[in-house]
Design a protein around this nucleic acid. Structure first.
Lengths: 200, 200
DNA sequence: CATGCCATGTAAGGCGTTACATGATTTC
DNA sequence: GAAATCATGTAACGCCTTACATGGCATG
């Protein structure tokens, strides 16, 4: 998956400026891209050159002008064919903390417990932040479209978009929950280990 | 955390060649670095220039020569001070699949179910591979040091290294387990959603 | 006989990051 | 009055990846 594909997907059905795209990328914790200017604006220029997006400059008084990008028909079909061909990509598992733990175990086992406690605290803090952000976004969306035409579809079932939105948040939540439980369990083991070591 | 820190940690107590370090990095799924030649060999040269590692070339007959690197006293103290100062680093959460799901929900909801099924299958396959690799490594280590002087320390408790080693595998295992459960639950929800949609 | 492993490196190119630049408006 | 937000971009630098290069040994 390239950043261009993601941008096409984000643009589907809702034209946006580069600034908006950038914000989306910065705010979502699971994106592959940090969402810095250089990435986003260059990708948009390139998509424009390839004719997959169209750019309309909107001048506003008392506010900077915006370049609003939207999908062209070519962009729509590029998106569709990417989606049809795309295989699901596996998550990237990058956990520097595991390296830190391994090094600490070899060189200074006394640091294990404080390291684990700090890690646990930080993961829990991140978890809380993710939950708060979700609540904030939910409130925002409820304000934007009420009564919500999207929450229930015509047949009375949940819409696909709502389901996937909830699924994404659920995924992140489970990730932090698993990490928290793991850290707790390792901390307990380490406490009983070093405790026993001192007793005997 | 830089690759240099990780190399110092890996070298602690067991001198190795660049090739060995590279293999370790390639094999461990949670490292931040892919472990390609360019990274490892350049980092070793740089550590050598800074005087943190020493290099001894070992010539062997009927096999290529190896450059075995080990920590110098300066390297030992650099490692210790890094470890003392280091704050635990949070895992990176990069899940392109969540983007794919979101795009699919907006453009082609019928693709959700097959995407989810493929993803589930791939995650389960990765999970099995990780478990197998763990079993393989365990067998290797049991062969190398038997009776194991490291599994139990002098006071009869588990050593810190053993504990952390098990903890690392446990972390990876929990990660895949959480991802599997999540995928299963979303797949079920999507099935009942699209099923209901067709019934009514 | 070919493929793969061991073992060391180099070269080229792309991608990503941080920082800089500008300028108006809103908020504390 | 300072700082953050909106909004667009550019420049420099570094890291990371892929590929190339070499060469002997082992395995099928």
């Amino acid at each position: 998956m390239q950043i261009e594909d993601a941008i096409l997907g984000l643009l589907k059905g809702r034209p946006m400026s580069g600034y908006d795209l950038k914000k989306l990328m910065v705010d979502s914790p699971y994106m592959l891209w940090s969402g810095n200017n250089n990435q986003v604006y260059r990708a948009l220029l390139q998509l424009d050159e390839r004719g997959l997006v169209a750019c309309e400059t909107v001048h506003r008084e008392g506010a900077p002008s915006r370049k609003v990008y939207s999908l062209t028909p070519a962009g729509e079909s590029a998106l569709a064919s990417w989606l049809a061909a795309a295989l699901p990509e596996l998550p990237e598992l990058r956990k520097p903390f595991l390296v830190q733990l391994a090094v600490a175990a070899r060189t200074d086992p006394d640091r294990l417990e404080p390291l684990l406690r700090q890690y646990l605290a930080e993961v829990e803090a991140q978890h809380r932040m993710a939950r708060e952000q979700r609540r904030r976004l939910d409130r925002l969306e409820d304000r934007d479209r009420r009564p919500d035409p999207d929450r229930l579809n015509e047949s009375g079932g949940l819409s696909a978009r709502r389901l996937v939105e909830a699924a994404i948040y659920d995924n992140i939540d489970r990730f932090y929950a698993a990490e928290t439980e793991w850290a707790r369990s390792v901390l307990e083991q380490e406490r009983s280990r070093s405790g026993k070591g001192r007793e005997t």
